[in-house]
Design a protein around this nucleic acid. Structure first.
Lengths: 134, 134
DNA sequence: TGTCGTACTCTCTATTGGGAAGTAGCGACC
DNA sequence: GGTCGCTACTTCCCAATAGAGAGTACGACA
């Protein structure tokens, strides 16, 4: 089938790209931390285990779909553990593994940087926008 | 026009969400660091200034559009400086500001974590995939 | 005259993410 | 005994976003 050629080329290219990423650990982790919700979930779980519904309340703005998807990915990576309690309505709770907890200092350092430098960034933005507008 | 109602509701919700984010500095910064290319650009510029074409070669896989877009955002935030040399073909080079350099330790810590823990993550993934397949 | 190099910019298509509605399993209530 | 409600998802649809690749502006040089 000649019609598959373009799709094959794309897939091939994608695989090569993925293979390239696979050779660099920092890029692989980046794919994980680059997800907006990952860092928020990690901070939410910093103080101990949380249920699915608690997480979705804590992390205001996350859709159920994304929460589930991100949690699955993190479970797959061994960063958190999903445990099911077969109670009346089933309870599912999530907690960090030691590996997950080892990521907390990084999340914390991002938070600290933000708190220290956010006003400088705000000023820079205002200045830039004013310069562009003129 | 009744037809704009849905769009208005969406915009309204978006604004409320943005307002919510605005109150939390770590979320604002997250929007910045959460961008896949930001961390890569920061590492690329760690050793000094780079030209546009050098960056696009260093950061294999970035599209021109995304590179330009990300550089503009970082410039706006005061994280890097864009300087134009009006030579024969124009030269544009980018370098980190002190603010940008203050972000480097965070990028570095991500890299370090990755190098130390990537194999553990790989193992966890294999185990998870095997468990799901069975 | 035309083509080359740089740094974009534009357009079109593929992928991703959000919102809302649907599902499963079971207890409780009428 | 039917259906209502709870939790934790899952699915579908559509809008927003990312990426690929072609086009643009500029002046030098052959």
């Amino acid at each position: 089938m000649a019609t598959t050629t373009a799709a094959q080329r794309r897939r091939r290219a994608r695989e090569e790209y993925d293979a390239y990423l696979a050779t660099c650990p920092s890029r692989q982790l980046l794919d994980r931390l680059t997800d907006k919700w990952v860092t928020l979930i990690l901070s939410a779980l910093a103080d101990g285990e949380q249920r699915y519904s608690e997480l979705s309340r804590t992390i205001a703005g996350v859709s159920q779909k994304m929460l589930t998807q991100t949690l699955r990915n993190l479970e797959r990576d061994g960063i958190l553990i999903r445990s099911i309690t077969p109670a009346v309505p089933v309870r599912v709770s999530y907690q960090l593994t030691p590996l997950g907890r080892s990521l907390l200092p990084i999340v914390q350092s991002i938070k600290d940087w933000a708190e220290q430098h956010m006003s400088v960034v705000q000023d820079a933005r205002s200045r830039y926008d004013a310069a562009v507008a003129s």
